[in-house]
């Protein structure tokens, strides 16, 4: 079992929902984003505008794990690279070592509240109780390990069942994000990677990221599709009465 994500560049519309969902899910301090959007255009004769929704790659051979001097950063059985906030000493070796710049050190000035110097909103106050962030330690995307753990404990399947799936994947209006088990050749992620030639960022670092990207043209569908999908959707919401 190795959890992975596929980001479809032909679908992402740069709406920032993934960032907002992650903030809510993890009550992120104002100065921090776990996922980030990198937008770019290539220019030239056949220009392409692309937006890369990036987050920690949960690298299989993770430089951050290699360098962590305290054992706070570790790789779980399921491939997720986790940080134990109670062990992290804040040396930032991993921050510098992550070649994808996916780690952020939570300094005091990154945690001044949503409205610095004014009030702490009720949401923030609730967040302090529900999700622990420690100033002086390093953070990053954890593939929503809390959701995965709680979900799989109930027998749910990450990437298929919403409750066990990362928040950003659930919210993406473009359905540009897909989650699942890379070790399972029949999973949606494995299928997308093989069918659409999924690629990883900077394979030359030999980190073997668990986040893949795919791209492609819109509009190859040649037959007039008459599938039963819309009807299925309808049943799911029980309307039409």
């Amino acid at each position: 079992m190795r959890w992975g994500m596929v980001v479809d560049l032909s679908k992402c519309v740069r709406c920032y929902a993934c960032l907002a969902a992650c903030r809510i899910e993890h009550f992120l301090p104002m100065g921090i984003n776990w996922p980030k959007l990198v937008a770019m255009d290539t220019g030239g004769d056949d220009p392409t505008v692309s937006t890369y929704s990036v987050r920690c790659n949960q690298c299989k051979d993770a430089p951050c794990v290699e360098v962590c001097p305290t054992g706070a950063t570790q790789q779980r059985e399921d491939g997720i690279v986790s940080i134990d906030q109670d062990k992290c000493v804040g040396c930032r070796y991993c921050v510098v070592a992550c070649p994808y710049q996916n780690r952020t050190f939570l300094s005091k000035d990154k945690d001044q509240g949503f409205f610095p110097g004014i009030i702490q909103t009720d949401f923030e106050k609730a967040g302090k109780k529900l999700y622990k962030h420690q100033v002086g330690t390093t953070e990053k995307c954890n593939f929503c390990a809390e959701r995965i753990d709680a979900g799989t404990a109930k027998g749910l399947k990450p990437g298929v069942d919403r409750e066990a799936t990362p928040a950003c994947v659930n919210t993406c209006p473009a359905r540009a994000l897909t989650f699942g088990d890379l070790d399972d050749p029949n999973s949606e992620v494995s299928r997308l990677i093989s069918e659409k030639k999924g690629f990883q960022l900077h394979p030359e670092y030999n980190t073997d990221p668990s986040v893949y990207f795919i791209d492609g043209k819109i509009g190859q569908s040649d037959e007039k599709k008459v599938d039963d999908e819309p009807q299925k959707e309808l049943k799911a919401i029980g309307v039409g009465d």
Partner: peptide, 16 residues
């Protein structure tokens, strides 16, 4: 960031 935890570092030479 958390100087008081520095003992975690010095007890783990195998790490990095």
């Amino acid at each position: 960031g958390k100087p008081t935890r520095f003992w975690r570092i010095v007890t783990r030479p195998q790490t990095s």
